[in-house]
């Protein structure tokens, strides 16, 4: 029974990881940048979500605006920050990204205050019992459903629409795609928008689960999402999804049974190192 509850809690955490890491994978697949500042868009989404909900009391609107704002900020980040340095070695973009993340975190603190924001009356806090007694907060259940829905929608878009196919083609062979008349610029914009919107979406969920958004809330995702996309085999969407859920469950059990030996981060990274030494291409690499 406890084991089941731990799996359930691991999946809740894993869903959040998945939402953040998916956006990162989209960016990585296209540009090969370790985009640390992605986590700042997650924080941005959370702030927008809480402020919009507190002002209007409309949760769907809060989600929509959070996603749009994070998405647009993502596109702006790409255009202003990454595009001009794409020809440079990868560490240049990595350090630029880290600088951007630090600056963003401090901007949140200066603008919104260090102590963060909370929902005045947090929605979705009710209790639901499933499968004969495993208790969930409504928000926990919804985050899993929301993640599943959005991933299904993305999968459908990617294989069934022109834009989606163009994106996939660009990831596997940019030059070829360009010669077929696909606009690289447009594809990159779209990828950044979608990836960042997902981060913003995740941000609002985390705000709902914890009833707290704070300037530093992105610092754990900033590196853990990197670990997840590497675990999933860098650039593979399915691998990332699986890695996120597996890591969520590993951490849930780890914090209970190994908590006295290692903290959550160390457990996650011990698992990562173990996997990489056995399978250098990642847990679920397809290529």
């Amino acid at each position: 029974m406890l084991a089941l509850e731990l799996v359930a809690q691991g999946l809740v955490q894993g869903s959040i990881y998945a939402l953040i890491a998916l956006g990162l994978t989209l960016v990585y697949g296209l540009l090969r940048i370790l985009h640390v500042a992605h986590a700042a868009l997650f924080t941005l989404g959370a702030y927008v979500g809480v402020m919009v909900y507190n002002a209007t009391g409309n949760l769907p609107l809060a989600f929509a605006l959070a996603m749009v704002v994070a998405g647009l900020a993502g596109v702006a980040t790409f255009r202003l920050a990454y595009q001009p340095i794409l020809s440079q070695p990868p560490f240049v973009a990595l350090i630029a990204s880290i600088g951007l993340y630090i600056a963003a975190e401090e901007t949140f603190r200066v603008v919104f205050g260090a102590s963060g924001l909370s929902f005045a009356t947090p929605p979705l806090q009710g209790q639901v019992a499933l499968f004969g007694g495993i208790q969930f907060k409504t928000a926990e259940l919804m985050v899993m459903l929301g993640t599943a829905l959005i991933i299904a929608a993305l999968g459908w878009l990617q294989t069934r629409t022109r834009v989606g196919v163009a994106c996939q083609a660009t990831v596997s062979d940019p030059q070829m795609a360009e010669s077929f008349g696909i606009s690289l610029r447009k594809v990159r914009d779209i990828n950044f928008f979608v990836g960042s919107a997902l981060a913003g979406f995740a941000g609002v969920w985390v705000a709902l689960l914890n009833n707290l958004v704070e300037p530093t809330m992105g610092s754990v995702p900033s590196y853990k999402a990197l670990a997840i996309i590497v675990l999933g085999g860098l650039g593979s969407v399915r691998g990332t999804l699986a890695a996120a859920l597996v890591l969520g469950v590993v951490e849930a059990f780890g914090t209970i049974y190994l908590g006295k030996l290692l903290d959550r981060n160390a457990i996650a990274f011990a698992f990562l190192i173990l996997v990489l030494m056995l399978r250098p291409q990642g847990l679920f690499a397809t290529r």
Partner: peptide
């Protein structure tokens, strides 16, 4: 900030 596992236990 997420204590699901600890809370269940």
């Amino acid at each position: 900030r997420q204590f699901g596992a600890v809370v269940s236990t």
